[in-house]
Write a protein that binds this DNA or RNA. Structure first.
Length: 767
DNA sequence: GAGTTTGAAACT
DNA sequence: CAGTTTCAAACTC
């Protein structure tokens, strides 16, 4: 299977001659994932192995569905983390259906969550562990076997447990992905691995990575499920996800049914679900970042180098690894923190979170979810930033490989990845910006934001008792923790019921209230797709901002804070959002603030220069910033597009946007807007996931099913992929990859069935 | 660290 | 649904 694929890819890419290609051939005997359609892969993967596809896709509403979707995407990205992060662990679904709160535990966990979720969703919602294990056991075993074999390859010499694990994990990841999304898997998987590796070993030679990747791919086909399962059930590595002392601490695992609230990551269901999802999103980027980053990174040239995991990590026990990841995630947030993060990076333990107590189980202030949680959107960025150049390079190499390989198997994935990357870039940009901005003094407030708001936050609530959206912690679906300086805080474990009830109330008012504010995913692509094929940045502000004085150049602006450009849905005035002006709206003639587009139009260019400057500053400030710069341009280009389709609009205020989009893109929008809340479980987050994943999935699906998507596929450049980014780094390769991918994409029928876009949610029965 | 600004969230 | 108030973060000094 694989070998042929690779060759194909290589051939397609014309890399046959390339040493890399040769190397790959040599290294990876194992066939890459089937060329199955990415979508199919996903389905296959899940359906056949894990759970019925229908379950996954079918029910957008249900967390599972969403999760699955998310997972799908995330998997590619996140999986790697899972591998690393034991803590990550699994999301548990609280039998009770209660919410699960995410604790700071770590971003890692989040990422894990994703995986877990996927697993759960696909496999079994009920008992992830037991079930998954049972089902997965075989796959796992297989995977293990393959992995071992791979390990050798991977090992290059470095067969550390971590490595092996990673390899396994990676493989698993890949496999999963392959199963799910080959598309992503190829790249993402690889990337992720690299990232992971990089994390562990910053210095890891590219070669190693390459090997790794290669193995990946090769093995990926086989192991797909196994890995996943491994991640959850197994701990193969870390596994233990929860087991990891660090990772989730008792919360995750221990949490009895009741509220899992404490459970950090895993259970995202309600309350937390959102957070989790968000996290996923956010993290995704991080995790994804691996893949994405790799792609993006290369393109963007993230500078951050060293932050990633120190070589030490290799030696580090799994636990530590988990920590690392966390730290990475945190990094994201931490990126903002910068210096600190960097330091932390080296030492996973520290790194992650001072704020988020990773380990401590203080009741007084529950751990917060690290940036993790949300992420949505944000965290990822950090991760990206954190990624060392080396990694980038590696990634590039990987990309090449992936391109070669990927194409054969999963074209779509790349596109998605790319998209994701874009998102990440944005996020990263934001993060970097934030970091730069936060710079020194503000650190007090530093939150580990993902952008989505999922990150670990510190609130200072005085009157809201941390039970309102004013409270970032609450909004992020995390309990307040020590870092918080809140007064009269009820957002803690001891008031779980109150928290949940409050949350429900808020959700009842606004189902998307807890959804990440910014969606990084490719949604835009879909949405954009509606408008036009050209989708620029994937990330979009869910609701849109209403900035008047900040010109969308400050954190006051959610869009800016989220690292995304303003969209049509925004009602901002004098928008100068460096990540993308609302200009598009103006162009579209959609909503323009009173001030008028004219101004914007006129000023836009000038502003751009300013923005660019800012971006540059950010970049300079942070290592990663380079991305920003790179991205910005793309962003700029994209902007208009981005503006076009606001991903989702909350039901509440911003009518026009949502309406417009909705009409245009019922499928996604519907999901977003009308979150199907069947249950509490469904919580807004569900929507979010859909949003996030949905994008990817939907996109994929759409590609298959809907012409729009197809369009996307056809013209990747326009849509998701932001040329600039691509160009920045990998350009050649990346582009090639894209092309290949794109070509392949059409083939994917995959999810279409599920996704179809239509509103899955309606279908979702709800668990 | 205190005070101001800002815009989202909440309320009417 | 629109307008106002409340709130806490973001920002400035």
């Amino acid at each position: 299977m694989d070998t042929p694929d690779r060759p194909r890819a290589a051939a397609a890419a014309g890399f046959e001659d390339s040493p890399v290609f040769n190397f790959i051939n040599n290294l990876s005997p194992i066939p890459p994932p089937k060329p199955l359609d990415t979508a199919h892969n996903v389905q296959l993967f899940k359906s056949s192995d894990l759970a019925p596809v229908s379950s996954i896709f079918a029910s957008p509403h249900v967390n599972p569905a969403k999760e699955t979707k998310v997972l799908i995407r995330d998997e590619s990205v996140q999986l790697p983390q899972e591998l690393h992060s034991p803590s990550s662990v699994r999301t548990r679904i609280c039998p009770s259906g209660s919410f699960r709160m995410i604790r700071c535990k770590d971003i890692v966990s989040e990422s894990c969550n994703i995986t877990c979720q996927l697993n759960e969703a696909s496999i079994d919602s009920s008992d992830h562990t037991s079930n998954s294990t049972g089902q997965l056991s075989q796959s796992i075993q297989d995977a293990a076997g393959s992995m071992e074999s791979n390990k050798d390859q991977c090992g290059d010499g470095k067969t550390d447990l971590t490595m092996s694990q990673e390899c396994t994990g990676l493989e698993g990841m890949n496999l999963d992905e392959s199963g799910l999304d080959k598309m992503d898997s190829s790249h993402s998987g690889i990337v992720v691995h690299e990232n992971q590796l990089s994390e562990q070993n910053n210095d890891e030679p590219a070669a190693y990575n390459g090997d790794y990747m290669i193995t990946h791919q090769s093995s990926s086909d086989m192991l797909t499920l196994a890995v996943t399962s491994g991640t959850e059930t197994q701990p193969v590595d870390d596994t233990q996800k929860s087991d990891d002392p660090y990772s989730c601490e008792s919360f995750l695992d221990d949490q009895p049914s009741g509220y899992c609230a404490q459970n950090s990551v895993h259970e995202p269901h309600l309350y937390w679900t959102g957070a989790v999802e968000g996290a996923a999103v956010a993290y995704t980027p991080q995790t994804l970042p691996g893949a994405l980053q790799s792609q993006l990174m290369p393109c963007n040239k993230l500078n951050e180098p060293k932050d990633h995991m120190p070589t030490e990590q290799n030696a580090l026990p799994q636990h530590l690894r988990g920590m690392r990841r966390r730290s990475l995630f945190n990094e994201k947030a931490g990126v903002s923190n910068k210096g600190v993060d960097k330091a932390s990076d080296h030492h996973p333990v520290n790194s992650t979170t001072p704020k988020c107590k990773t380990i401590s189980g203080d009741n007084s202030k529950p751990l917060r979810t690290p940036p993790c949680a949300l992420p949505g959107i944000g965290l990822h960025l950090n991760a990206l930033a954190a990624i060392p150049k080396e990694k980038l390079e590696i990634q590039s190499t990987i990309n090449e490989l992936s391109n070669l390989i990927g194409p054969s198997g999963s074209s779509p994935a790349p596109s998605e990845q790319i998209i994701i990357n874009d998102d990440f870039n944005q996020t990263t940009d934001v993060a970097t910006a934030e970091a730069s901005s936060q710079g020194s003094p503000k650190k007090k407030r530093q939150k580990f934001d993902n952008g989505d708001g999922t990150s670990c936050k510190r609130c200072s609530c005085k009157k809201s008792k941390c039970l309102k959206l004013y409270c970032e912690c609450f909004a992020a679906g995390v309990y307040c923790s020590e870092p918080c300086s809140c007064i009269g805080c009820l957002n803690n474990q001891s008031h779980t019921e109150t928290v949940l009830s409050t949350r429900q109330q808020i959700e009842s008012r606004n189902p998307l209230a807890f959804a990440p504010k910014v969606i990084h995913t490719s949604e835009s692509g879909l949405e954009l797709g509606d408008f036009s094929n050209k989708t620029p940045a994937s990330a979009r502000h869910k609701r849109g901002c209403n900035c008047k004085k900040s010109s969308c150049l400050k954190k006051y602006c959610e869009c800016f804070q989220g690292g995304v450009g303003c969209s049509i849905s925004c009602r901002c005035e004098g928008c100068k959002n460096a990540f993308g002006k609302r200009e598009g709206a103006a162009v579209l003639g959609i909503e323009e603030p009173k001030q008028g587009l004219e101004k914007k139009n006129v000023c836009v260019k000038e502003e751009k220069s300013e923005i660019d400057k800012q971006l540059v500053i950010y970049q300079t400030a942070d290592t990663a910033p380079a991305e920003n710069v790179l991205t910005t341009p793309s962003m700029v280009e994209c902007r208009p597009l981005a503006c076009l389709p606001p991903p989702s609009s909350k039901k509440s205020s911003k009518k026009p946007r949502s309406s417009t989009k909705l009409t245009g893109h019922p499928s996604r929008l519907c999901n977003l807007q009308a979150p199907p809340k069947t249950d509490i479980m469904l919580s807004p987050f569900e929507n979010y996931p859909e949003m996030v994943l949905g994008d990817s999935t939907s996109d994929i699906l759409n590609g298959n099913s809907s012409p729009q998507t197809s369009v996307k596929v056809v013209s990747p450049n326009k849509k998701r992929i932001s040329p600039p980014r691509m160009g920045t780094r990998l350009s050649p390769i990346c582009t090639i990859g894209r092309k290949l991918i794109l070509k392949s994409i059409p083939s994917f029928p995959s999810l279409g069935g599920d996704v179809n876009n239509e509103d899955p949610k309606a279908k979702l029965p709800a668990p």
